[in-house]
Design a protein around this nucleic acid. Structure first.
Length: 202
DNA sequence: GCGCCGATTGGCT
DNA sequence: GCCAATCGGCGCC
């Protein structure tokens, strides 16, 4: 087995333009060792939030606070926040220092550790194990303890696995938000059956 | 201090 | 398709 901590995407990968980072994350593996269980999913859906210039970004909506401090941390570190008081959402900080940009992980294809995923999620159809930002964090055991942590020192890593051709990526409007929802910053793998919602649907 | 709203989800009509 | 659950920030009193 490969050393996933050593193989995880390097910091320079995340220092590029947030849109390039978002596209580059598609097809990569998200490997979690949270709770002593190894769970793995292939990233099939992400959204970019561009920071202070993006009305939908927490960097734009909220003052600089402990809550969103992670957005101003090093590229490649985690930003994990509580959504609707119930669900953890996991982002990777991207772009230049102070920009406040991050990539939200929205859906995975379950690859390994499915029994642990089912246990954490409750009895659920496989199709819905990781199809949504709150679902995938629950399935992989991700919570606030990851927040502000550089990926390399965390229990959750992103590992490149093969290459995605540009033609395999579908771009569309972001989901579940009101401000600047139509900005084309949602990226999905074409025809993936594991998306939170089908591409093109609002 | 109080009410409103949100990068969501699951259950019920 | 509708709506409750649940909580932290923000705006306003």
């Amino acid at each position: 087995m490969i050393d996933e901590r050593a193989a995880c995407l390097p910091v320079p990968f995340f220092r590029r333009d947030a849109i390039q980072v978002a596209r580059g994350l598609l097809g990569a593996l998200l490997v979690s060792r949270c709770g002593g269980r190894r769970t793995v999913g292939r990233i099939v859906e992400v959204e970019a939030y561009l920071g202070a210039v993006d009305p939908a970004s927490h960097a734009y909506q909220y003052r600089h606070h402990a809550q969103n401090e992670a957005l101003y941390g090093a590229a490649g570190s985690w930003y994990v926040y509580l959504s609707y008081g119930m669900h953890w959402c996991a982002n990777l900080v991207a772009g230049r220092p102070g920009e406040g940009a991050a990539i939200l992980l929205r859906a995975l294809e379950p690859m390994a550790g499915l029994p642990a995923m089912r246990r954490r999620r409750g009895v659920t159809h496989e199709r819905l194990l990781c199809a949504g930002p709150g679902r995938l964090t629950q399935a992989l055991g991700i919570s606030r303890t990851l927040d502000r942590r550089p990926m390399r020192t965390s229990l959750v890593h992103v590992v490149r696995d093969g290459r995605i051709r540009p033609g395999e990526i579908v771009v569309g409007p972001r989901i579940g938000i009101t401000r600047a929802a139509d900005w084309p910053l949602r990226f999905t793998l074409r025809n993936s059956p594991w998306l939170s919602r089908a591409a093109g649907k609002t």
